[in-house]
Simulated scan of single mutants.
Amino acid sequence: MLHQNEPAPTTSRWREILEKDFFPLNRRRDIDGLRGLAIALVVLFHAGWLQGGFIGVDIFVVISGYFMGRSALMQHPFQPLRFVCRRLYRLLPALVCMIGLVSAGMLWWVLQSDRADIAINGAYALVYLSNIWASGHVGYFQGQSIAYPFLHTWSLSLEMQFYTIIFLMALLLPLTKHRKLVLSGIFTVSLAYCAWSYVEGDTQAYYNIFDRLWQFSLGTMIWICPRPRLSPVVANIIYAAALTVIVGAGLFYTLQFACPSYMTIFPCLAVATIIMLPETHVGRLCLVPISPLGVISYSVYLWHWPGIVVANYLFFFQVHGLMMAAVLGIVLVISVLSYVFVERTGLDYEDRVAVCARNRGAALLIGTCMILAAILFYISYVSRVH
């Protein structure tokens, strides 16, 4: 009898590991589900199956502003080194892994001109300036974007630039009592700048931090806004309406509604509304089931676009249909492995080690990024010269 019961502890241990990694406690599962919806919209857009899926990036930006507002502005006292290290361990390991592996697997066999552009894009991605490189080289919605496996890192560069801004705000805001005024001012100025870009027809504003800062600020301002006190019925109705706006935008928006269009404000406000409401029955029914996808959304975002680009290079034609479905299936497997063995490992290490070891590790991550970026810069230079 004892022998028959031996596998039970192993099963329980694996269940605990899976619950810890994919169903983390002390988190709002509906917000993880919102992330899952966002990454699904982006992937389906890049696969060519959903015309308005680009709004997934807008969703991510608002959510990022919300969480960074908590990590930086709501911490008393603010711990600068802890904030920086947490961001580095969260982002760099998986990014370095993706760019290193894709570069090693791709750069030696692509055309020389492609090699130069891909390498330089990867280098800019590693120093979080990919959006600046992209704004001067390629339109995000144009056909040539399929040639760049690291083009999608423009949004990660935006996010790191926002982290820098909010880090400085966290350091300086204690010097002023007008925190709400500062955040509201940033939101207003950025929204006005975005509107000006729209009037001017500046399509490359899609990559610009100043045109996106109002979205980040909107998420951050949730912390300074009073939470509505609603009955469960009313909260569920508003929650369902906000979710309908997001899904409707993903289904029916066209490229003309991409940032800096005024139409982006509607899904962004819907995201902020969902975050401000408490967990509802609608959220548990519609968003919580896809929360595991939201948990691994960073890894999925990192790997899905290189997977599509590499497939198009390998097959010499635009991948679509069942072939695209197969590519995305492979990407999902790679993303899970990346989350478990790279992303999660980095965060767990940062949690358990002493402060001095944590800081040394962060410095090592930065050094690794700089070395790989230098190698890619050199590859790009040599490819262009010859």
Rank of each mutant, 00 (worst) to 15 (best):
F78D: 06
L95H: 01
L172V: 12
C194H: 08
V309H: 01
C259L: 12
F67D: 10
A249H: 01
A119S: 14
I296N: 04
L365D: 02
Y339I: 02
I290D: 00
A72H: 06
G33K: 05
I63V: 11
P260V: 07
L230D: 11
L91I: 15
Y207A: 05
I31M: 05
P93M: 11
Y262P: 10
T254D: 09
L332T: 12
L365Y: 11
A374R: 00
F317H: 12
G219C: 06
V96G: 03
S113Q: 14
L156T: 03
A147K: 13
M68I: 13
F167Q: 06
I237F: 14
W214T: 08
W109V: 15
W196G: 04
T345V: 12
C268Y: 00
Q142R: 02
V319H: 04
W108V: 13
E200H: 05
L322Y: 10
E159C: 01
R70V: 03
R352E: 13
L18D: 07
Y89C: 04
L34I: 07
W108K: 01
A8Y: 10
G65R: 03
G143R: 13
A258I: 04
Y124M: 08
V340E: 01
V309L: 04
F210G: 01
L95R: 02
L243Y: 09
N131W: 06
P232Y: 14
I99L: 09
A205M: 03
R115K: 08
M276G: 13
V295W: 00
S383F: 04
L277A: 08
I366R: 14
G346M: 12
C356I: 09
Y349E: 01
C97H: 02
I308M: 13
S103N: 07
L181G: 00
V342Q: 05
E200D: 15
V189L: 15
I55P: 05
F187M: 12
V340F: 01
V42L: 00
Y381N: 08
C194K: 09
W305D: 00
G346H: 10
Q112K: 15
G201Y: 12
A94T: 14
F210W: 09
R35D: 01
S383K: 05
V282W: 14
A362T: 10
T264H: 05
H320N: 12
Q215T: 08
L347D: 12
L337E: 04
A258S: 11
F252R: 13
W154M: 03
P232S: 13
F167N: 09
L376P: 08
P228F: 10
A170H: 09
M221T: 03
L293V: 15
A72C: 14
S145L: 06
